[in-house]
Computed example of a mutant assay.
Amino acid sequence: MENPAALALAPWAVPLPLGIAYSGGADSTALLHAAAGLWPGQVQALHVHHGLQAAADAFEAHCLATCETLGVPLRVGRVDARHAPGESPEDAARRARYVTLAALARAHGLGHVALAQHADDQVETMLIALGRGAGLDGLAGMPRQMQRHGVNFHRPLLDVQAVALREWISRSSTAHIDDPTNADLRYTRNRIRLQLLPALAATLPQFRETFARSARNAARASRLLAEVAAADMAAAGSPPMLAALRTLPRERLANVLRHWLKREHDAVPSEAQLEQLLDQIAACSTRGHRIRLKVADGYVQREGDLLRWYNARPPSQPAALR
């Protein structure tokens, strides 16, 4: 049985040299083996040591042994990914992971990093977005390519099902890590993976394909809204001028505010926060009208004729890279 990750990578016009986000788990192991086989000498493995569980040192040792066997350099970043009070531990770990992967990539001359997220991960992401009442951006799921912290991240396995990767791992007896936290039902993603996806498969056997189609449709609509928002941003400026914002209909105002907050500050307001901000902008007809509202992890504040966003949470930083 051929590695399905290799089949997915083969037609890719890969930007070499390439970093592989490598946790040691089954999915990233399949991706690393495929990339090392296709592009020998052009691949580096990037491992994030989260420090969240006692086995983290053993995970790193396993990854080092695998990389030595494959002839792939291993770059390790250690980070404190503990979450702040009231913050989702999953979101905190995700943010710390991207910051650390990007720092590792930049430190070792890599402009591109491949992630092992697959079709099942895409479905889980969409279901989480639905559960949070997300808009089109959330329903579009994970993009195949994105840029964060100065590095291009790619997801070449989004059309590959998890079962195909696990079957190859099992049949080829490829060593990998089974992270015990993946069975912890305290985490939303684990509950979806272990409880909801099997029920979906029994009820809607083609759900992965239909969800992927819905994600593509949502992504197209989201891109169109982004184009409208970019045009409105060009008129309003960044930070935006209140006078320009007040000329927009409410839905276009909501669209451009979401675009500004996400693009400029990586901040995603809740529906209640956005509605409150829209109301405040609509009421802001005098210079004396103050605006200071909690939005995402920071707050939006009026400063003269401008609207500004300030981060109340210090950025995640990798503790050590090597």
Rank of each mutant, 00 (worst) to 15 (best):
V300I: 05
A129I: 05
A114Y: 02
L204P: 01
F59W: 11
F207Q: 08
A320D: 04
G135W: 06
Q44R: 14
D232P: 01
I177W: 05
E87A: 15
V151D: 04
A219Q: 13
I128K: 06
A236H: 02
M233Q: 15
L277H: 05
D232Q: 12
A21N: 06
H149M: 06
T210L: 13
A134Q: 03
A267K: 07
A35Y: 02
R148H: 15
R191M: 10
C63F: 03
R78I: 08
A236P: 00
R322N: 14
A226C: 05
A312E: 08
A254W: 03
R166W: 11
I192R: 00
D184I: 09
R252T: 06
Q42H: 14
R263Q: 14
E251D: 15
G150R: 00
V163S: 11
R166D: 12
V268S: 14
D91I: 12
C67K: 01
A81T: 12
D80N: 15
A45C: 14
A81R: 03
E251T: 10
A134T: 01
I20R: 01
Q145N: 06
N311G: 13
A30Y: 07
P15M: 00
K262M: 12
E271K: 13
W309E: 04
L18Y: 01
T188I: 07
T181E: 04
V123M: 10
L321M: 06
V228Q: 14
H149C: 13
Y299R: 15
L200T: 05
S316K: 02
A140C: 08
D184S: 09
A13R: 07
L278E: 04
I20F: 05
P40N: 01
L38R: 07
A134M: 04
A114T: 07
P315D: 13
L52K: 02
P73L: 02
P15V: 02
R220I: 07
G304T: 07
H289E: 12
